[in-house]
Structure formats: structure tokens, C-alpha cells
Nucleic acid binder design. Structure first.
Length: 323
DNA sequence: AAGTGCGGCAACCGCAAAAGG
DNA sequence: ACCTTTTGCGGTTGCCGCACT
């Protein structure tokens, strides 16, 4: 039994691949009259298809504002980053990729990106390093740093998602009345402010900071700089458009640690440039430490590793792969 | 050349939410 | 408030082309 489907073989409804002739009919009808009710469209357009099939064909293939072909590196990164934030919410992800359809993004993820992530050692579902997951599974106490790593990544992910949701709600409230949902084109208009990438970066960055704090040598670092905490700065970041973002940009309740602010002002660094340098690979984690803490501080990395087993290199590699 | 396996992608399916009466 | 219809979405399927044997 069950609910009848418009695809059910009955009443001469055609299924399967669309022919060029069918495409022409559908395109011509919509260009002339708009799609209106999809249910009644096929008959009016002279098509032996169900409305649902017509809508899908239009949305995923025939619309003039669809970009087809290879995905750029930037699009790859965007999909990976948004998937880490949003999961399999393909329409939401596609909304951040102008002129790409959710179906195309979904297919691309399933056929390319998922495998690529797996290949470099990341679980494509959780976006966590697989080695860390395996380490936690066997209960080996030596892998406590991996457990910590997982916890930090998850924490960062949840924080980022919470901020993203909050941000979206705020922007929806602030924005003008939304266009009609029946307007297919509006869905592919560029997003107002595609900030989620920066939010993820911010959280990943915070994650690294947190990891440094959680180490048993943080006290030693504290003593060295004479302040309450170790810090990499004041949570400024350069977004993809080259705009220097500060804590307020991530939401009104962004909780930048006070101690970080104190230390940042003390050091007087604008870490946006440093973030950029590291993200582009022109500076590694050791150099970053040197920039922030001075030469003597770089000696702390081996000490951190010796005392805690924490692999900064691995963490940084993971972060870079996500960025 | 034929058979087989696999990857990519368009299209289908079914459920849920939204809209309308 | 309830029911029906329409639309949106994400998971899945199946066809097609290519590579390999």
C-alpha cells in the first residue's frame, strides 16, 4: 500500500532521463509563464512527466543560473568546512556556493570529498582525525592526548555551530522581509554574509589555544610571561574577503577570554596577519610561537611534547587540512 | 573484442514541513 | 483545529561510460 507516488507507473507518466525535446518544452514554458504550480505544469507544458520530476529537472539542470563543471579549490574547502559545521544539510551548504545546486554538492561530496577526507586520515562524518578515533577506541592510556584532541575538536565544532545558528537568527531578524519561497532564483542569490568559514576558523584556532592551555606546562608558560595565561592574541581573524574580524563579529556573546585580551594588549600584536601567514603555509607553528612568545618560548614546544605527549604538529596539520 | 567492476551523476523515492482551504 | 495539497530536502538507486582484465 503506502502513499501513492507521482512516479508510480500509471497513466502514461514518463520516467527516467530527460530528452532534449522535453527539456526544450519545459524551459520554453517556464520562460514564458513561470513554473506556477508544479503539479499542473506538465499538462500545460505538454509533458508526460509528473510535476515533481519537472521541478527537479528545472532546479538541478535547466535553470540558467546554474554553474556546472569542476569545483574549484575554494569550493572544495567551503564544502568541507560547511559540512563540518552543518552535517548533511546540503541545501544549506549549497546556499553558500553561488550557482551550485544541493544535488550537485551532495553528489560531489559523496563521490569526491568524502573519499579525499578519508584518504588523508579524517573521518568524513565527524571530521576528526581517524588516528585519534582509533586511539580512543583501544583504551590505551598513552592516547590521552588524542582523547583530548577529540574533545577539543568536538568542543570547537559545537561552539561554532551554536554561533552559526545564533548569527543566522540574528541576521534573519535584522534583514528585510524575505522574498517569496516560491521564487526559485532568490535561493541562489549570494549569501548576505558568508561568515561560517571564519567562525570555523575561529573555533579551530581557539581549539589550538585551549589545547595549549590544557597542557601541564601552561603554568610554566604563565610564569615566563608573568601574566595569568598563555595566549596567541585577541581572537582577530582575517576572513576570506580580507576583512579583519574581531570577537564581536562572531556574535554578541562571543566569549573572548579576558586574559587573552590582557596579554594581547600587552604584546600589542595584530594576530590577523599571523593567522593569515600560518593559514597560507608561509609560517609554521614553531615560528608562530616565536612571534608571540619570543625565541626562548620556542623551546617550550619540545618540552610540551615531552611532558604531555601532545603532538602540536599533528594538531596543526589537522587544522591546516580543514582550513 | 567481450566481460566485468567501478565511479560519477541524474533522477527517483519517501518523509516532513509549509501552505492553503 | 484539522485535513489536503504542495514544496523542499536528504538518502538512495540505477544508468552510463570508462578502465581494466
Amino acid at each position: 500500500m503506502g502513499k501513492s507516488s507521482c512516479y508510480a507507473a500509471a497513466s502514461g507518466i514518463k520516467r527516467g532521463p530527460w530528452t532534449p525535446e522535453e527539456d526544450r518544452k519545459l524551459l520554453a514554458y517556464i520562460q514564458l509563464h513561470g513554473h506556477g504550480s508544479w503539479r499542473s505544469l506538465p499538462q500545460k507544458a505538454g509533458l508526460k512527466r509528473c510535476g515533481k520530476s519537472c521541478r527537479l529537472r528545472w532546479r538541478n539542470y535547466l535553470r540558467p543560473d546554474i554553474k556546472r563543471g569542476n569545483f574549484s579549490l575554494h569550493e572544495d574547502q567551503t564544502i568541507i568546512q560547511l559540512h563540518a559545521l552543518l552535517g548533511n544539510r546540503w541545501s544549506a551548504i549549497a546556499a553558500h556556493l553561488p550557482r551550485r545546486t544541493d544535488n550537485e554538492v551532495k553528489n560531489y561530496w559523496n563521490t569526491h570529498l568524502k573519499k579525499r577526507l578519508a584518504k588523508i586520515g579524517f573521518d568524513p562524518v565527524t571530521h576528526k582525525p581517524k588516528a585519534a578515533i582509533l586511539g580512543s577506541a583501544n583504551g590505551d592510556p598513552k592516547n590521552w592526548s588524542n582523547l583530548s584532541h577529540i574533545a577539543q575538536w568536538e568542543s570547537a565544532r559545537l561552539q561554532a555551530e551554536a554561533r552559526f545558528v545564533k548569527e543566522s537568527k540574528l541576521r534573519m531578524l535584522e534583514s528585510a522581509p524575505a522574498p517569496s519561497l516560491s521564487d526559485e532564483h532568490h535561493q541562489f542569490a549570494p549569501p548576505l554574509v558568508p561568515q561560517c568559514l571564519d567562525i570555523l576558523r575561529a573555533s579551530a584556532w581557539e581549539s589550538l589555544i585551549s589545547m595549549s592551555r590544557s597542557s601541564s606546562r601552561s603554568a610554566a608558560l604563565t610564569n615566563m610571561n608573568g601574566q595569568g595565561n598563555v595566549s596567541f592574541g585577541d581572537h582577530h581573524h582575517v576572513n576570506d574577503h580580507g576583512i579583519n574580524m574581531n570577537a564581536q563579529d562572531y556574535g554578541s556573546n562571543f566569549e573572548a577570554p579576558t586574559s587573552d585580551q590582557q596579554l594581547s594588549s600587552l604584546m600589542g600584536y595584530d594576530d590577523a596577519a599571523l593567522m593569515s601567514s600560518v593559514a597560507t603555509g608561509s609560517m609554521n607553528i614553531n615560528e608562530l610561537f616565536g612571534e608571540y612568545c619570543g625565541d626562548e618560548c620556542s623551546e617550550l614546544l619540545p618540552a610540551l611534547h615531552h611532558d604531555t605527549g601532545f603532538e602540536f604538529g599533528d594538531a596543526w596539520t589537522s587544522l591546516e587540512q580543514l582550513m
